[in-house]
Design a protein around this nucleic acid. Structure first.
Lengths: 127, 127
DNA sequence: CAGGATCCTGTTAGATACTG
DNA sequence: CAGTATCTAACAGGATCCTG
């Protein structure tokens, strides 16, 4: 199949591909366990690094910083540094971050809703 | 803080912890790039293994089978084997799978909606 | 307290080859 | 065609030490 874009040589094809690969990249960033748990933990609150570490059960220092940097880079969380000593750093979801959170909420809700279905499905499968 | 459950010695505490850890386990299974992309690709359709491989761009043979097994085990996809030669295996989302898909749709939608915001956030961060 | 840098280990995921 | 098994390279992630 030959598209009009190919014939006209306009740049839309390349643009679309770029947008797609960007979307894919963002999706890969965001669709990971720790990122989603951090977003969920933040919710509407503002939390310090150490608080977040307690809220997100099982996350290591390294994973937390790493994911927070990534989320900050993608504009999902806002990082506010208070120039005090000892330092105080607070994280908050941005507007897009809060948007995404509703989807994460849905996944969390789904998980709890289907606990027993999943447990029995596992039982059947493992047999 | 001492709860009533601790005092009565009833098993609810243990039950709650079990449910939570199960929920966490399921979440960790499901909240990964390939699983979500597979769910999204399946949608309302029924697809064969090879079709799925084409639909989910970039997925390797191994990752596809691995994640399909996991999704089947958790009762999110239905696997139907046709005893023909050559074999024909079809995958379909189950009812819970379709439920989860709406949340995945939301994430995908979110991604595309915020493309430009994210791109500029990245620009700022990288500077 | 927040977080960067380093080291070290277990897991992951790709490539390849083989089976029903 | 769908799936399993094996080997290996790469990476993720934990522990630890150090700084402002």
């Amino acid at each position: 199949m030959v598209t009009k874009r190919q014939l006209t040589g306009l740049p839309e094809d390349a643009d679309l591909r770029r947008a797609d690969s960007l979307a894919r990249e963002i999706f890969s960033d965001v669709a990971n366990k720790w990122a989603l748990l951090i977003i969920e933990a933040l919710g509407e609150r503002t939390l310090r690094f150490s608080e977040l570490r307690n809220e997100v059960e099982g996350v290591s220092h390294k994973m937390l910083t790493q994911n927070l940097r990534m989320l900050e880079r993608n504009g999902l969380v806002d990082r506010k540094v208070h120039p005090t000593v000892p330092p105080r750093v607070e994280y908050t979801l941005t507007e897009p971050g809060r948007d995404l959170r509703t989807a994460v909420d849905a996944i969390c809700g789904w998980t709890h809703q289907h606990l027993s279905h999943i447990e029995s499905a596992r039982g059947r499968f493992d047999a």
